[in-house]
């Protein structure tokens, strides 16, 4: 059962990495993307999701008793969170030369996922805490 749990975690982790690259390519979230071109993001997404599902469901027989519903739910949450952390970290390293625009050029702009069109996740978070620190020192 432990092996099944580990394998399910990796299914979710790899699939969610694919989903995040699909979303980054579709919504032009440059700061979350591993690739310069959108087509590479789509290709990665298809390969990651299809590959993970084929590996999990075709290579081994999954019609066996295994994980409880709550365990599946917890593994899904853990896998998707891990994939977001991995994607945010790797894309922040790959795109570290993206210009930090928000917070310096347009401090009144609404934060959110759209900010990742112009900066990486780490830049966005660093900008957020810098602004917060500035607000506290200048009330």
């Amino acid at each position: 059962m432990t092996q099944l749990a580990v394998e399910y975690f990796f299914l979710i982790f790899i699939s969610c990495c694919g989903v995040l690259q699909f979303v980054a390519a579709r919504r032009k979230l440059r700061g979350l993307s591993f690739f310069q071109r959108a087509i590479s993001g789509y290709l990665f997404a298809v390969l990651a999701i299809a590959g993970a599902f084929c590996w999990f469901f075709i290579v081994k027989n999954r019609c066996v008793p295994g994980l409880e519903g709550s365990e599946v739910f917890a593994l899904f949450i853990a896998g998707s969170l891990a994939s977001f952390i991995f994607t945010a970290s790797l894309s922040s390293v790959i795109n570290r030369k993206l210009r930090l625009s928000m917070g310096e050029d347009n401090p009144s702009e609404e934060p959110g996922l759209d900010s990742l069109k112009r900066m990486t996740y780490f830049q966005a978070i660093a900008g957020h805490f810098r602004r917060k620190g500035g607000e506290q020192s200048n009330p």
Binding site: S15, C16, V19, F53, R62, V72
Partner: peptide, 16 residues
Amino acid sequence: GNDYFILTGMALVVFT
């Protein structure tokens, strides 16, 4: 019909 395939696929759509 197995315990994971459809539900995991649906959860991925929800994640997207």
